[in-house]
Amino acid sequence: MIRLCNVTKRYGETVALSGVTLSLPTEKVVALIGSNGAGKSTALNIIGRLIPASAGTVEIDGKSLRDWKSNELAKRLAILGQTLYTPARLTVEELVAFGRFPHSRGNLGAADLRIIDDALEYTGISTLRGCFIDELSGGQRQIAYIAMAIAQDTKYILLDEPLNNLDMNKAAKIMKLLRTLVREKKRSVLLVIHDINFVSFYADYVVAFKNGALKYSGKTEDVIRSEVLRDVYDMEIAIKSYRDKRLCVYYE
């Protein structure tokens, strides 16, 4: 389980995250929502040890983040940032093979190669394995990075705005893939996301931030409500029912 205890992040005088205490459920799709600058990406990056917290502690499976050895934590937690640019010239297969780095330190064995093949197969990009990353579309590239996280074989997968700049088709495909990962491979997915309808349809659990503070957290049906969303986004959002799910309508 991922647990945050009184986590604060300051940039000089600016408080990006203020005293957040939170426990996140496992084997679920957990969505972090909120307006721009609400603190969701900061929280994700602190959990993913990309930035240090100014105060407070983060625990991964009962052990403080600072007590984990880098390599051991990498076998348990993978984070994919917003930027899908990589300076190195890599093919899809080479990128996915990097997922095995925490396990093999670059010396790939037969088991590693099988896992890489499985990850490519699972995400449906086997045919792209020889393509260079910079030749792919945004959606294909995102899926390649998710395949790398699958090959990394971690319990937790953290994604920062994975649907940025994707069309509806690709975005839905990625959300379905993440759901399948949770259902079939028992992974815990934690993602920062802006589209609350994708949250409503694909997330199990929602954490809402506002002005650097934790505002709400709970099951999707408890958070995707008009009064909660009005408080989080400072605007009227109507909720309609569609296929037993809640559809958010935010056009006035």
């Binding site: 993913g48 040890r49 990309l50 880098s70 390599n71 051991e72 934590l73 990498a74 076998k75 937690l77 993978a78 984070i79 994919l80 940032g81 930027t83 640019y85 990589t86 300076p87 190195a88 890599l90 990097f98 997922g99 780095f101 925490p102 990394q152």
Partner: peptide, 12 residues
Amino acid sequence: ALGRERSISLGV
């Protein structure tokens, strides 16, 4: 060579 974020995620 994959960049800071990705190398940290890979346990470097």
